[in-house]
Nucleic acid binder design. Structure first.
Length: 131
DNA sequence: ATTCTGACA
DNA sequence: TGTCAGCA
């Protein structure tokens, strides 16, 4: 089911070490729209490239929503400038999200350190009182 | 044998 | 995303 530029869902699943379920999952999310041979899904080289992009986005920590934006860009090699600008915006939004999460983590860390210190003091105070 | 859709102890 | 079911 291969050789030319046609791939079965299994060909892609094996190639990218993912399950066929995962590929269908991405399709449900609108990330891919493979051709059909009756009910069977038939993937082109373009579909394979798209899946590659989806997987790359996932590795970079992008949400499926962000990946959807990135994939849509790939689908239109035409207007380069607008694409790059949109891509840049997606990257900025992602950076913004990560920085917010980092800020939240740091805040939680300081709160944790404070609680820990209060706990230590309460503990030593109690021990002193008992001895 | 393999894929597909739908569903969820 | 896994998995099981009931089809084709």
């Amino acid at each position: 089911m291969n050789d030319a530029d046609q791939y079965s869902i299994r060909d892609l699943a094996d190639e990218f070490d993912i399950t066929t379920r995962t590929i269908r999952f991405y399709e449900d999310k609108g990330l891919m729209q493979p051709a059909r041979d009756g009910q069977r899904r038939v993937y082109s080289k373009g579909d394979r490239a798209r899946l590659k992009l989806i997987l790359r986005g996932k590795r970079l920590g992008f949400s499926l929503d962000e990946i959807t934006q990135l994939v849509s860009l790939y689908e239109t090699p035409e207007d380069t400038v607008p694409q790059l600008e949109q891509y840049l915006e997606t990257l900025r939004n992602h950076r913004s999200l990560l920085e917010k999460q980092r800020a939240d983590i740091e805040r939680t860390l300081t709160d944790l350190a404070r609680a820990e210190e209060e706990c230590r003091q309460a503990l030593t105070t109690t021990l002193n009182g008992q001895s």
